[in-house]
Design a protein around this nucleic acid. Structure first.
Lengths: 344, 344
DNA sequence: CTGAAAGCGCTTACAG
DNA sequence: CTGAAAGCGCTTACAG
């Protein structure tokens, strides 16, 4: 019913092969023939059938994008839309489609990825997270299927393409910044340590403390911060101990917003009573009160670079693994206070 | 190289037709044969080739999702990720894939949609916006291709499937709420009137004013609110006129955040000096200062319902057009103040 | 209940 | 520079 390559060929008095070659702008077709065929294509409103084309050519012209938990929490976090925006931008430039994973659980996502790979739905995959012992990651690696991670892989670092921020370093920078402001009792409110980004930042925090000869104390560390009641209790506990921290490092801006709210209920003021600094610099961090000091991790660029890496890998399946680190910027706003007397 | 239906057939001593029928769980294949074939599929790690399957079956098992401007602004707005989350959830339940548009300009998006339709990349399309005289929309309608809009279409309303909030009504509700609080000078900071959502909300605002016998005044209306310098100037102008409004209705929470910031610079306090109310209830509206009173429009559900409508339409191309309105909830926080003396 | 055959709409060596 | 033919990996009337 739709117009096919055969219709065009008949109408233009050439063979289907020739039409096919005109579509791909094959150099050995005469300009005259190309012109004639293109006119017919235009006139008949011909568009090549995507599936037939890819089946014959053994490619798909689409890349798969896999989130940790698309259907549940992922999109609450501004990180994902922003990386995807980067991916879309680059993909669009290369005429590639984006196929989005939709699974809700780890197992569902794994099954979807297997279907993408085995069913040849996509030419390559971008993983938007990096987790310890990830079945999906291991599968892709074992299949030797083209893929890139946004984040540092837990194992086999030098066999895998990835882009990331230098999370250990930026956590150090953040601690250094607080130390310069005169803080010594610095707490860390971390994320789920199954994610490499969380453990990297924790490591950076710890090593920065060591550099400043501040000892790491377990009671200053909240691991896998929970929202709602549980998180509130953790913050209360943290702030009412004998020697409470004067500064908090939160692993994500939305965690920082929540903490500020809990602190408020405890009548602890930011930054007067406690400073807070965080990572990821969400769009709204300039609008909350107080405006949040945060590390901008250039999420859009992570998406762009990840796509570039993947396209390279698809073209050259055997090239060496490539790692790229994307720069970050500390955005100083008003959530941290100096304890140095001379600056007060 | 990958294992095909032929390999499975040979190994199971049946014909490819039979394997194919086992894949689709055809009722007329004996249980015994099914069992045997499934064992072989399992053993050989067979997965049907997605493209070949769809080419032969003339379907795609994927739906296209089209944003207004994916590569630029769309993802800044929490609306899109949240609808997409709804769409993914529903699509996943039906084993469908999601194909995301990536175009940056209106024309690019149009071309992408034409390629999706003509190239038979998708079985149906969800449009995440509704705009006046939209080329893409008109094309889909003329092609009689299955599609659904999130938003009310500008024309041909009863020929098109869509889901929406009742934007005229919720704008009225918001004005009624302010009037109950004693406000009479109510300003409206609207969006781009090319989008139907913006003009619907403006209409609701106007008719509510009329109901309360308040006259609509042009100097209370800011059309197509701009961020940055231009928006700031507009707000300054609005608030320094002879008879400034005591309440502002903003067409989106992120606009409200921005306005609050401008007001601050003008040393106008919210809600003491002016009240502000808004639509869409973004996740962060409870965290800004003051916490924002906003209408929750149940974005996730818009996504779910839109997908349901589309799946129905794909199954029954000739059924009557269906419209669904998704409920909304006014979330009262602290950005509006009562002017009624008795409540003060 | 199962198989042989045609077909989905392209691409691509091969040949000239 | 162009065409005939085989093939990509499936599905689905048709026949038995």
């Amino acid at each position: 019913m739709a117009v096919t390559i055969i219709d065009v060929a008949r109408e233009a008095n050439v063979s289907p092969s020739t039409v096919s070659r005109v579509i791909t702008d094959h150099p050995r077709i005469s300009v005259k023939t190309k012109k004639k065929v293109r006119e017919v294509m235009e006139r008949l409103q011909y568009y090549p059938n995507f599936q037939a084309r890819n089946l014959a050519a053994r490619s798909t012209q689409t890349i798969g994008v896999v989130m940790a938990n698309s259907a549940t929490l992922a999109f609450q976090n501004p990180f994902f839309p922003e990386v995807i925006r980067g991916i879309c931008t680059k993909a669009h430039a290369g005429q590639l489609g984006i196929y989005l994973s939709t699974g809700g659980t780890e197992e569902e996502i794994f099954q979807e990825v297997v279907a993408m790979v085995q069913g040849q739905k996509v030419d390559g995959i971008i993983l938007l997270y990096s987790r310890v012992d990830d079945k999906t990651l291991n599968y892709l690696r074992e299949m030797n299927f083209p893929f890139t991670i946004v984040g540092r892989p837990y194992e086999y670092e030098n066999q895998i393409d990835f882009v990331d921020n230098d999370n250990r370093k930026i956590a150090q920078d953040v601690v250094n910044y607080l130390v310069e402001l005169g803080h010594k009792n610095i707490s860390f409110i971390g994320g789920d340590l199954k994610f490499v980004v969380s453990s990297d930042r924790l490591e950076g925090y710890q090593s920065a403390l060591a550099n400043h000869e501040l000892t790491y104390q377990n009671q200053y560390f909240i691991h896998d911060f929970a929202y709602e009641q549980e998180g509130k209790e953790a913050i209360r506990h943290l702030m009412t101990q004998e020697n409470p921290p004067t500064a908090l490092v939160a692993h994500d801006d939305s965690v920082a917003y929540e903490i500020i709210r809990f602190l408020e209920e405890l009548e602890i003021r930011v930054p007067e009573d406690v400073s807070i600094i965080s990572f990821n610099n969400h769009a709204l961090s300039e609008h909350v009160k107080p405006p949040l000091t945060s590390v901008d991790i250039h999420i859009f660029e992570l998406g762009i670079k990840a796509t570039e890496l993947l396209l390279d890998r698809i073209k050259q399946p055997e090239r060496e693994a490539v790692h790229q680190f994307v720069d970050t910027t500390l955005i100083v706003r008003n959530s941290c206070r100096s304890l140095n007397p001379r600056e007060k």
